[in-house]
Amino acid sequence: MKPTDFAKHLTEFLSVYLPSQKNVSKNTIRSYRDTFKLLIKYFQEMKSTAAERITMDLLSKEMLTGFLDWLETGRNCSISTRNQRLAAIHSFFRYVQAEEPSGMFHFQKVIAIPSKKAKKTVVEHLTPEAMKLLLEQPDRNCLKGRRDLTLMSVLYDTGARVQELIDVKVSDVILDTPAVIVLTGKGNKTRRVPLMKNTVSLLERYMLENKLDKPWKSEYPLFTNNQHNKLTKEGVAYIISKYVTSARKTSTLVPSKVNVHCC
């Protein structure tokens, strides 16, 4: 069977355009890929259409709106997730309209699909007193406790996203005055965040006792698990949760559920 125009464009979009021309992060490419995996699943399960029969003509505004509704009602996805999937579709169709100008009118109907408004949620923040209590929980007499204290201090001091934190390499930590840490966010955009003296002291000790001061370890992840692999988002969430439970045994200053972004 001859490859469809959808197959051709999607392959080029994911494997060439995004990584080489747009230079987007691997996480973004993974998210976009997952969107189209779900779209193919939607065609197979809801439209009885095999992946090899999906064409650009089938990807109408009405079809894609149905897909988004299926995500929200059939798969119980949040409005935020729905909008993320739509953003991937918009990006794909902007790419395709440049490749096939003759279909621009059809493609722009899809690009015009609006995001869905979600209820605004209140962003929670720990008070300085609650954060101080949380930082008192790790056992400073053991290696893992000192790692956790350093991790939470960096998270609090820099306001880093969890993904940014776990992506930090040893070479991203600059402790010479003025001390900074280099964070890499969405789209591989970097920013240099200054560090407070206490965090600098914790990092100096942490890196020294873990022998991370060796030049050949510059590309090692800053924070690792018991298997010396880079921490995961779930791993960081577990660490925070553990100390939240500990802190609440003596005080209600710390809420029972603390999102890692609160730190």
Rank of each mutant, 00 (worst) to 15 (best):
K2L: 07
P3N: 07
T4V: 07
A7L: 02
K8T: 15
L10T: 02
L10M: 13
L10Q: 10
F13G: 09
S15Y: 10
T28E: 00
R33M: 00
R33E: 03
D34G: 01
F36P: 00
K41E: 06
M46P: 00
K47W: 01
K47H: 06
A50S: 12
A50T: 11
R53D: 13
L58G: 02
K61Q: 13
T65E: 15
D69L: 14
D69H: 09
W70G: 08
W70Q: 02
L71Y: 03
E72R: 12
G74V: 04
C77Y: 07
T81H: 07
T81I: 01
R85H: 06
A87Q: 11
H90S: 03
S91P: 05
F92E: 03
R94H: 13
E100I: 15
S102I: 13
G103M: 12
F105I: 15
K109W: 09
V110H: 09
A112W: 08
A112D: 15
I113F: 01
P114D: 04
P114E: 10
K116E: 02
K117F: 02
A118Q: 08
K120M: 07
T121S: 05
V122K: 03
H125G: 01
E129H: 14
E136N: 10
D139M: 04
R140Q: 11
N141T: 13
L143R: 14
L143P: 07
L143C: 09
K144L: 11
R146N: 11
D148W: 04
L149T: 15
T150W: 10
S153E: 13
Y156H: 09
Y156S: 06
A160V: 02
E164T: 05
E164L: 05
V168G: 05
V170N: 02
V170L: 01
I174T: 10
T177D: 14
T177W: 05
G187C: 12
K189R: 12
T190I: 05
R192E: 15
L195T: 09
M196K: 13
L203V: 07
L203Q: 11
L208M: 12
N210I: 13
F223Q: 11
N225Y: 11
H228A: 14
H228M: 14
N229H: 15
L231K: 06
I240V: 15
T245W: 03
S246G: 09
T252P: 01
T252G: 05
K257L: 11
C263H: 05
